[in-house]
């Protein structure tokens, strides 16, 4: 059909750009922070993103996997991906030596509505690897501190040895312009300096003004149920509770069908959804 010429763009939406692993920072067991730098200088300059977006990471010869971005667009130059060694692609990534080249596509997904969140209080609730995408938002809001009102971070890990970005986050305890609450489920040796218990217990330490608060939640599936209960108890509007979801975002561009939730695609309609979306989309949480 000759009519279709107008629809064709020149770009190949599936084309990965090459990026070099310039730094590997081991985090907790099986988790590393990879710092990546695009090979193409033009890409280095033009690549920008919103907190909460993700990229498709290719390990040449193994395959492609979606990974959330852990760095903040307020700190351009390198892209940081916090990766758990959990599948085929990530296992291959962990075998790559420093200075290896990987493929990157993106950024994809909606990201957090950071402009709508301005002039509001933010309550960021993370569990486990959920901190990976929320770290992008955290540094974004701290780097734009004056645009937001109160900022509270609640982050829970099972034990101290399993807390991602532990030293970076512990250093936030000193900041007076935010409230940083870090908890571990268990502290058998009694060395954890702050709260002990599940993340929902941290709600005992905060006041929430539902009129002007956005809650941002990311963690293992089991965490949502309990955190949502707490937020609803505090009368937070359902469309001001934001969640970052994990699905199998294979293509990243809304074509391959694998990340469907209800009839939305996590890759283009998400991965950030409101709790109101979740109520209206069966099987979301």
């Amino acid at each position: 059909m000759s009519n279709y010429s107008a629809k064709s763009g020149a770009d190949n939406i599936y084309q990965p750009s090459l990026a070099r692993i310039v730094r590997i920072l081991p985090q907790i067991k099986d988790h590393r922070l990879f710092e990546l730098r695009f090979e193409d200088p033009e890409m280095r300059r033009s690549f920008t993103y919103n907190p909460g977006q993700f990229v498709e990471l290719s390990v040449i010869g193994t395959g492609e996997a979606p990974v959330s971005i852990s760095s903040s667009p307020t700190r351009p130059g390198v892209l940081e991906l916090c990766v758990r060694k959990i599948g085929r692609v990530t296992e291959a990534l962990f075998r790559l030596p420093l200075n290896s080249v990987v493929g990157l596509r993106g950024p994809y997904g909606n990201g957090f509505p950071v402009e709508a969140m301005e002039r509001n209080n933010l309550l960021i609730v993370a569990g486990g690897l959920g901190m990976a995408p929320l770290r992008s938002l955290l540094w974004y809001v701290l780097d734009n501190r004056s645009k937001f009102k109160e900022i509270i971070l609640m982050f829970g890990a099972k034990i101290s040895e399993e807390m991602l970005f532990k030293f970076e986050l512990l250093s936030l305890l000193d900041r007076t312009d935010m409230k940083c609450l870090l908890t571990v489920d268990k502290d058998e040796e009694g060395t954890w300096p702050v709260q002990v218990g599940v993340v929902t217990r941290l709600f005992d330490f905060v006041e929430i003004d539902p009129e002007i608060t956005y809650a941002i939640v990311c963690g293992p599936p089991i965490m949502y149920k309990f955190v949502l209960e707490k937020l609803l108890e505090r009368n937070l509007p359902k469309d001001r509770i934001l969640m970052s979801l994990e699905r199998r975002m294979k293509c990243g561009v809304g074509k391959c069908g694998h990340c469907s939730v209800g009839y939305k695609y996590t890759c283009i309609d998400g991965p950030i959804f409101t709790y109101w979306d979740a109520i209206n989309l069966p099987e979301m949480i």
């Binding site: 059909m1 000759s2 279709y4 010429s5 629809k7 064709s8 763009g9 770009d11 190949n12 939406i13 561009v253 809304g254 074509k255 283009i268």
Partner: peptide, 23 residues
């Protein structure tokens, strides 16, 4: 299928063939 493969991200593998095939 045109609806799905167009949009913000256009799948040119699909649309190049579409363009070159008369129905």
């Amino acid at each position: 299928l045109d609806l799905v493969f167009s949009g913000t991200y256009v799948d040119n593998y699909y649309f190049t063939r579409r363009k070159n095939t008369s129905i």
